[in-house]
Amino acid sequence: EEEEKKKEEIARLLGVSKEDVERILKKNNLDIEQLLRRVQREN
Rank of each mutant, 00 (worst) to 15 (best):
K27G: 10
R38M: 15
L13K: 05
R37Q: 15
N28C: 14
E9Q: 11
R12W: 07
K6C: 08
E22W: 01
E19H: 08
I24Q: 04
A11Y: 01
L25I: 11
K26G: 06
R37H: 13
K7D: 01
N28Y: 15
L30Q: 05
E3S: 11
Q34L: 05
K7G: 01
L36W: 06
K7H: 03
E33K: 03
K18H: 06
V21P: 00
D31F: 04
D31L: 05
Q34V: 08
L14W: 02
V39T: 06
E33P: 01
R41N: 14
L25N: 00
K7F: 08
K6S: 06
E9I: 15
K5H: 11
I32A: 13
D31H: 06
Q40R: 12
E8V: 11
L30F: 08
R23I: 12
D20E: 15
L25M: 12
I10H: 00
E2I: 11
E22F: 01
L13R: 07
R38A: 15
R38F: 11
N28M: 15
I24L: 10
K6H: 07
I32N: 01
E8P: 00
V39A: 14
E3F: 14
R41M: 15
N43E: 12
N43K: 14
N28W: 11
L14N: 00
E4A: 09
E42I: 09
E19V: 09
E4L: 08
K27M: 14
K27E: 15
N28R: 09
E19T: 10
E33H: 06
K5E: 10
E2S: 12
E42F: 04
E1N: 12
K5T: 10
E2A: 11
E9D: 08
E19A: 12
R38G: 09
K27V: 14
Q40F: 02
V16F: 03
E42K: 09
K26N: 08
Q40M: 10
Q34M: 07
K26E: 14
I24F: 08
K7A: 04
R38C: 09
E22Q: 04
L13C: 05
E2R: 09
N29Y: 06
L30I: 13
L14H: 01
N29F: 07
D20F: 11
E42A: 09
L14F: 02
E4D: 13
E2L: 11
V39H: 04
E8C: 09
E42M: 06
L30N: 05
D31Y: 04
I32S: 06
E22C: 06
V39N: 02
K27L: 14
R38V: 15
L25V: 06
K26M: 11
R38S: 14
E1T: 13
I32K: 01
L14E: 00
V39I: 14
I32D: 01
R23Q: 13
E8Q: 12
N29A: 08
D20M: 13
E19M: 09
K7L: 12
I24S: 02
V16K: 05
L36E: 05
S17L: 06
A11W: 00
R12Q: 08
R23A: 14
L36T: 02
K26C: 12
I24T: 03
L13M: 11
V16T: 07
R12V: 06
V21S: 00
K7C: 05
D20T: 14
D31P: 04
E4G: 07
K5P: 04
E4I: 08
G15T: 01
I32C: 06
R41D: 14
D20P: 00
N43M: 15
L13G: 02
I24P: 00
L25A: 09
K7M: 11
R38I: 15
R23Y: 09
K6F: 08
K26V: 13
E42W: 02
L14S: 01
N28D: 14
L35V: 03
D31W: 02
S17E: 06
L14I: 07
K5M: 12
R41K: 14
E19W: 05
N28I: 10
I10T: 05
L35S: 01
G15E: 04
E9H: 10
N28P: 03
E1H: 12
V39K: 02
E42G: 10
K18W: 07
V21D: 00
E22A: 05
A11T: 03
D31Q: 07
L14V: 02
K7T: 05
R12C: 10
K5N: 10
N28Q: 12
S17T: 14
V16E: 01
Q34F: 04
E42V: 08
E3L: 15
I10N: 00
L30C: 05
E9N: 06
E42S: 10
R41Y: 07
K27S: 13
V39W: 01
R23F: 08
Q40N: 07
K18T: 12
K7R: 07
E22D: 13
E2K: 10
R41H: 14
I24C: 09
E19I: 10
L30S: 04
N29T: 05
E19C: 08
K6M: 15
S17V: 04
E3Y: 15
L35A: 03
E8A: 12
D31M: 05
K5S: 11
L30M: 13
E42N: 12
L36Y: 05
N29D: 10
G15P: 00
E22T: 06
R41P: 06
E22M: 05
E42P: 08
K7V: 09
L13V: 05
L35H: 02
I24Y: 11
L25P: 00
E8W: 09
E9T: 12
K26L: 11
I24V: 05
E3H: 12
K6I: 14
E22I: 06
N28H: 15
E19N: 09
L13D: 01
L25H: 00
K26Y: 06
R37T: 11
L13F: 05
E4Q: 08
L36N: 03
G15A: 04
V39P: 01
D20H: 11
E19R: 10
N29K: 11
Q40W: 02
R12L: 08
E2N: 11
L36V: 04
L13Y: 06
E1Y: 13
Q40Y: 03
L35D: 01
V16H: 01
E33G: 03
K18E: 05
